[in-house]
Design a protein around this nucleic acid. Sequence first.
DNA 1: GTAACTGGTTCTAAAATAGGACTAGACAAG
DNA 2: CTTGTCTAGTCCTATTTTAGAACCAGTTAC
Lengths: 166, 166
Amino acid sequence: MKRTSLGRVECPVARALDEIGDWWSLLIIRDAFDGMRRFSEFQKSLGISKGILTARLKHLVAIDVLQTAPISDEGGYQEYVLTKKGRDLFLVTVSLRQWAEDHCFGKTERRSTLMETASGKRVPRLALQGRDGKELDSSMTFVRKAADLDDSRAPRKAGVLRTAER
Amino acid sequence: MKRTSLGRVECPVARALDEIGDWWSLLIIRDAFDGMRRFSEFQKSLGISKGILTARLKHLVAIDVLQTAPISDEGGYQEYVLTKKGRDLFLVTVSLRQWAEDHCFGKTERRSTLMETASGKRVPRLALQGRDGKELDSSMTFVRKAADLDDSRAPRKAGVLRTAER
DNA sequence: GTAACTGGTTCTAAAATAGGACTAGACAAG
DNA sequence: CTTGTCTAGTCCTATTTTAGAACCAGTTAC
């Protein structure tokens, strides 16, 4: 009973999770953003078992999120660095970080914070701007299935999104 | 050897993944954004086993991402709707979606697309704006550990982030 | 009333994980 | 160049999680 693969599904969210949605990948990527490069650095930071870390790093290299590079000239150890594809996960980590800051910490709990180097201040809120410049939320969008290419103004199939008030 | 918990870690990314970083949660949330509410809708859409779906829904209700509501007046079936905490995951799904659109599809592969209801056009790119209004990338930020509260201009501890060119 | 559907629970087998023991090659000191 | 330590893994076992199917009680449809 192999874990079901989402690699060939048409929903991009599912494909993303198929590649980096496992328990450890995004934490490894977060550490890579934080400057870590060596096997032992990741292992120490995450407290992950070596077997799992080996498998995860191999997978991330295989899907071109990380790349190996010789650590000095020829022959010695190697390190893992983010590729462009890996660096492009930055906004994913930022969105997760901001969500957790809002919802997963008690008022008095300490947390690490993402800072802007230039200003020395906290990074501003991530926001999705619509065509008119105003902020978009989920109720102002819908998903067009790949099959509906000729029907670009189709409303959300299931009707109005119903949500809880709080 | 229980899966290691990240619930009490100080890094918000880790806490977020502790709550919703498992194999199915974000897909359930994606479907909820897409208007799904009933157990059977989720089960059909995801092709997930009922036992797992039951566990995942219970967990999402327990952490207040979803909420149950009676489907008609008293006694009948119930449905699952997003709470505010759940709706606030919108940008997480958008960032994952845009990343996968860029990196996980062949040129000719069909994909579903997130559309803006007002304009009928595709939702614009998500962008993180710095204090000066310019777009921020990972190299222009650093993580301030909770312990360094009094040291807000500390540079990234591990030095310059090294990445692969491509 | 009966048939089908909904929303589960329970079972088994397979896969993934944690944690530790072990090891080949790199590197450092003398 | 010899010894000792470090690095980056591999391999093993016990436990946990997952997939998939069977089963079941209450609800709705006919």
